[in-house]
Computed example of a mutant assay.
Amino acid sequence: MTIDPNTRATSAVPKGVRDASEWALRLLIIGLGLYVAARAISAMSEIVVPVIVGILLCALLEPITRRLATRLPRGAAAAITVLGTLAIIGGLMTFIGSQFSAQLDDIVDQSLEGIDQIRAWIRDTFHITDSQFSEYIQKARDSLSGSGNLGETATKAGLTATHVLAGFFISMFALFFFLFEGKAIWAWLVRLFPRSARAKVASSGQIAWGQLQAFCRATILVAAADATGIGLGALILGVPFASGIALLVFLGAFVPVIGALLSGLIAVMLALVAKGPITALIMLGVVIGVQQIESHVLQPFLLGRAVRVHPLAVILSIAAGVILWGIVGALIAVPVAAVVNAVSNHLLADSTPAPDDADDLLTPAEEASVDRDVKAAEDQAAESS
């Protein structure tokens, strides 16, 4: 008895269950791969995070280097850009330090007066005597001091500061080479992929780079607007250290949606301690007003048009970034989401089916275009060096 080879045995498993199991298996493999990659990145976070920061800074500063390179060698233009960035950062820190030193006595006096006002309000509102108030404060101090080994905490703080300093220098070092030989580095990365995939990789890289630059430009404008509004509000209300508040809001605004709000709450706390609850409520109104302008005017017209990421995706990305990498994760969450969204749309847009015998092949024109781009980047790097 012969069996027809074209005859297929009937499976007892329904087709829907088979499809679901195949999807589940593939999703498990993908999830395992992502987990391994995340663990590897986490293990090398002291290198990966500074490099990511360097990439973001490069996206922001590359136009400056490109303009300088029209008059100077590429290496000199990159060095001037990095040194200028360091000079600006150092100048801002020096200015803030001098302002803080000059206002320190006034801040202490106003803080003591504000604490007395807050203490009197708590005592009159909740009918707490001075002895009970002092007892509660002492219990809080004892709980804080007994919550852990202070020496161990100080050691961890010292190690963290050392890691931050080392990461800063790695970021600056990476920034210089990204500005100097960024095209050559990208060309080398493109050559690591099979020739059939280089066209897609190169075009995806251009789209990702455009998204990063658009994000950085829009974020700078939004951060400057937030810092100006909240800083002027603090200055008008007489809140101490208004210049430091403005700088803190500017830096915090690089975390979309929540950054400027959280840093603005520090201004509210300073206003509460130094000026009392009425001034603090007015300062809170200023912070909320600036945030409303940002959310309904600046974000839709600037950041929304630049990266085109849904607000829900922004919130979820920031939450995931905080869980994975803390403050740094919150900083890079939105640009990563914007890049992933743009590149995914680009890769999925080309739905033209390829012939069965021509899978993974480029047309001669596409192959020649990729080779020309790679060769031009290498020649430019050679001339710059």
Rank of each mutant, 00 (worst) to 15 (best):
E378T: 13
D371W: 07
P14F: 00
A349N: 05
G329N: 15
V17G: 00
P194N: 02
V286G: 01
A76E: 08
A9E: 08
T125P: 08
A214S: 15
V82Y: 07
A218R: 04
Q103F: 09
P300E: 08
I323V: 14
S203L: 09
R123A: 15
G31I: 04
V48Q: 02
N341R: 15
L34Y: 03
A234Q: 15
D105Q: 10
A40N: 00
P50C: 10
L32H: 02
L175W: 07
A365D: 12
E46F: 11
D360M: 14
F169K: 15
G238K: 13
M44H: 11
L251W: 14
L212E: 04
L192D: 05
R119N: 15
L284F: 09
S196K: 12
A199V: 15
S351W: 14
G114H: 03
Q292K: 09
F177N: 00
I64C: 09
A102V: 12
F177C: 07
L348E: 13
A337V: 08
Q103A: 01
R8E: 03
G326K: 05
D371E: 14
E152D: 05
F215L: 03
R66D: 06
T279F: 01
L25N: 05
V17F: 00
R372T: 09
G264I: 07
A87N: 11
A337L: 00
G182M: 10
E135D: 06
W325F: 10
G33F: 02
I96P: 09
Q213W: 13
M93W: 13
T155G: 09
T2E: 04
S344A: 02
G304D: 10
V249W: 00
W325P: 10
I55C: 09
R8S: 01
G146L: 13
R8N: 07
R191W: 05
I107C: 11
L144Q: 08
A319I: 11
V334C: 06
I245S: 07
A202R: 12
A199I: 06
D371A: 15
L86R: 03
D357K: 08
V297T: 14
A214M: 01
E22L: 08
Q206Y: 12
T10N: 04
R195C: 00
V51I: 07
I236R: 12
V307T: 05
M93Q: 13
I137L: 14
G233I: 02
R141L: 12
S196Y: 08
L104C: 03
Q99P: 08
T219D: 05
G264T: 05
A12G: 10
P256Q: 07
G167H: 03
H163K: 11
A24S: 12
I318Q: 09
V108K: 05
K375V: 12
T94K: 11
A225L: 10
A157W: 04
G238Q: 08
L92Q: 03
F178S: 07
K183Q: 00
I80G: 07
P50V: 10
F133W: 15
D226N: 15
T7I: 06
S42N: 01
I30D: 11
L68P: 00
V201Y: 14
A24V: 12
T70Y: 04
P335Q: 11
W209Y: 04
A319C: 14
V336D: 00
